[in-house]
Design a protein around this nucleic acid. Structure first.
Lengths: 103, 103
DNA sequence: AGTATATTCTACCACTTGGTTGAATATTGA
DNA sequence: TCAATATTCAACCAAGTGGTAGAATATACT
């Protein structure tokens, strides 16, 4: 399933932070690596995970790899959660109120 | 971080399905177990993960453990994604249009 | 041509995870 | 009291993960 990879990808705080940096625009892998307290290779691996999840694209320009955010999948992930949120806001909160009224 | 556990929890399709069942109302662990093609203990472990992530609460009634959805954390998770979605919808899609206009 | 730069690939490690099975605990009912 | 029921706990296993280090690859610069 697509959502599996997306949620697994954003479950890691480093990867969420990478997405945060990428939200500011295109960035090289090395530039990312400078910003994080792990090894270059570690960052490279995280980027690959984000790529496999479809959250990031890579544009190889000579020896530099430029990374860009790809919002489509994250939108899908947001939509899944949103579906639940709406459901709960209406139905479940009322149910909760009912259930906790008399213990 | 709280989000780590929430996203890791919903990255597993079985656990997302469990949340789906729980959206229909309170359910016993055993009832859940009947609905999934894994062992009782497997389901019990998944429930524990959801509990640790703060997505589910347990009400022990005699020997039965009744599970209930706890939407707060999922709302927080949705909010984080939503923040990104809004950002991208406005700023990044325009950026993407700009960047892909002239290759 | 040779060196520096940017990056991946491979291999390794400790830890976690999703799954199992079997034993333990607690409650219910005869 | 004893057996059945509902569940967790503990141990184990194979596979995956986040991290590292070192070698390999490809590009750029002098």
């Amino acid at each position: 399933m697509v959502l599996d990879q997306v949620y697994a990808a954003i479950a890691d705080p480093t990867r969420r932070a990478i997405l945060g940096v990428l939200a500011g625009g295109e960035v090289k892998v090395g530039t990312l690596a400078d910003r994080f307290p792990i090894s270059f290779n570690g960052v490279s691996k995280h980027v690959k995970v984000l790529e496999r999840a479809g959250l990031v694209t890579r544009r190889v320009r000579g020896r530099e790899h430029w990374l860009r955010l790809k919002p489509a999948r994250l939108r899908a992930a947001a939509r899944w959660l949103e579906h639940y949120r709406e459901f709960w806001d209406t139905r479940l909160e009322a149910l909760e109120a009912l259930l906790t009224r008399r213990p």
